[in-house]
């Protein structure tokens, strides 16, 4: 067992974990943050995307011990003061989700994109979402939602 300490969604947490514990497992099983999902075992689907140190990562492909001391943000921490993040708002407004399972990872990934570029092209959005699989939406409304969130962010 190792003790890890980190800030998750702005709150200091610490937990005892086996070194083999994945960050996704720490979040879901020890911290009860089940908004982060696990959809595959080969780091492809992106349902588990969270932010570590402000960058999007796959929490199923990172050890909890690697996040020791880090700032972690999950889907549960995205809305602030009861106010949805513009990307969350845009996903709802543009029907960017159906079953909702890929949605947390998809949103966390899109937030990272918009932090890097405020006016991504359709191609840039599609390429950025390479690490996020969705089986429901055909991506149409996800791309529309990210475009809308980018617009909202620029206004």
């Amino acid at each position: 067992m190792a003790t890890v300490s980190m800030r998750v969604n702005g709150k200091a947490v610490s937990a005892d974990v086996e070194p083999a514990t994945l960050l996704a497992e720490l979040l879901r099983e020890k911290l009860g943050l089940t908004g982060t999902h696990v959809g595959c075992d080969t780091s492809q689907c992106g349902a588990c995307v969270v932010h570590v140190g402000g960058k999007s990562v796959k929490s199923c492909t990172m050890l909890a011990v690697e996040a020791d001391g880090a700032e972690v943000k999950t889907i549960e921490g995205l809305a602030e003061n009861g106010q949805l993040h513009p990307v969350q708002e845009a996903f709802r407004e543009h029907h960017g989700l159906q079953c909702g399972f890929c949605t947390p990872g998809m949103i966390m990934s899109a937030v990272d994109l918009l932090a890097r570029t405020s006016d991504p092209s359709e191609r840039e959005i599609r390429d950025w979402l390479e690490g996020n699989l969705c089986r429901c939406t055909g991506y149409h409304n996800i791309v529309k939602a990210v475009q809308a969130a980018a617009r909202a962010g620029r206004e």
Partner: peptide, 9 residues
């Protein structure tokens, strides 16, 4: 290489 999340790690 890979996808953005892979490139971040």
């Amino acid at each position: 290489i890979g996808d953005p999340q892979v490139r971040n790690r």
